[in-house]
Amino acid sequence: MKDREELVLVVKGETELLKYLVDSVPAKRRNTIKAVLRDRQVSVDGKVVTQFDHPLHPGQQIRVRWEKIPFNRLYHGIRIVFEDRDLIVIDKPAALLTVATETEKRRTAYSILSDYVKERDPAAKIFIVHRIDRETSGLLLFAKNEGIRDRIQETWMSTITERTYVAVVEGQVEPAAGTVTSWLTESAAFKVYSSRKPDQGKRAVTHYRTIKGNRDYSLLSLSLETGRKHQIRVHLQDIGHPVVGDKKYGAISNPIKRLALHAQVLAFIHPVDNVPCRFESAVPPSFLRLFAVK
């Protein structure tokens, strides 16, 4: 077995992860298998697992990537969350564009990942599946071929099973949970406006709930039924609680010197293997510091 190969296994009975891999791959030393677990190179049903005694159940799919991801080749703070032959999921830092604009063509998530895949195969390409705002951090999905990208985009509503964001907003949100529905349009100046009239734009639905709060700020979890441009930012302005640092949509404070919006959870059905994949990124520490007891 070449070290560059990816191994895919289907569990037949109840067992634990390390034991299963040791029994299934006798050509690999136990310490080698421990190392790939430690280095986040093993996934169970699309979710990276590092725990040796993680319980396995019949029908689960195990992927082992023998080649360690060369993190030192990834710059500008990008972290690879998941990679297989079809997809790459990254954790994008704030202030990094997803794709090039007229004024910024090289320092983008797309260009960095393109360089990354070409270092291993000069003919390799990546394709943008969706975008998040430059000022927003968090999870972002790319495809490794055009067909996979098209398949996901064409079946977006059924393929993407969960998209959750966290945001710090100004003030104490009341009620603590709710749904915002409006119709969004974009002006010539690239600002998005919200209307309650169905004939004035594209329908957008955002669900929110309060995780924690204090006198000045609230930390919200937000899930999307639709994925319109600037949807969360506009909807939080609509309810009178703009995202911290979002001057464009009404914020008056910027205590952490960035937009306090983070794409925390991304879940989807794998377009080839048809297995559920779910990835979660930690809430940025700068968000949580706003709620530290002084």
Rank of each mutant, 00 (worst) to 15 (best):
G59M: 12
G46L: 11
T101N: 04
T164C: 03
Q51F: 06
I80N: 02
T136D: 00
T103L: 07
T101W: 09
E170V: 05
V173Q: 03
G147M: 09
L113Q: 03
I33W: 08
V44L: 12
I148M: 02
E102R: 09
S111I: 05
N72Q: 01
T50D: 10
F142G: 01
V42G: 06
F142Q: 00
I148K: 00
L96A: 01
P58K: 12
A143G: 09
D91E: 14
P122D: 07
P93N: 09
A35L: 12
R85V: 10
Q60L: 10
E119L: 14
E174S: 04
T103D: 11
E83S: 01
V169G: 01
L37T: 08
Q172W: 12
R131E: 08
R38C: 09
T50K: 02
L37F: 12
M157I: 11
T159P: 08
L139D: 05
D150Y: 06
I62S: 04
L141V: 11
Q153H: 02
F82K: 08
P175D: 05
R65V: 10
V64T: 07
E119Y: 15
D53V: 05
K118T: 03
W66D: 06
R149P: 15
L74A: 00
R131A: 03
P175F: 09
R107Q: 13
L140F: 14
R107I: 15
M157L: 02
A123M: 10
T103W: 12
T164A: 03
I112P: 14
V117R: 02
R85T: 08
Y165C: 03
T50A: 01
L74K: 06
K118V: 07
L96S: 03
L140C: 13
T164E: 14
S43P: 13
L56N: 15
I148A: 00
E104P: 15
G59V: 04
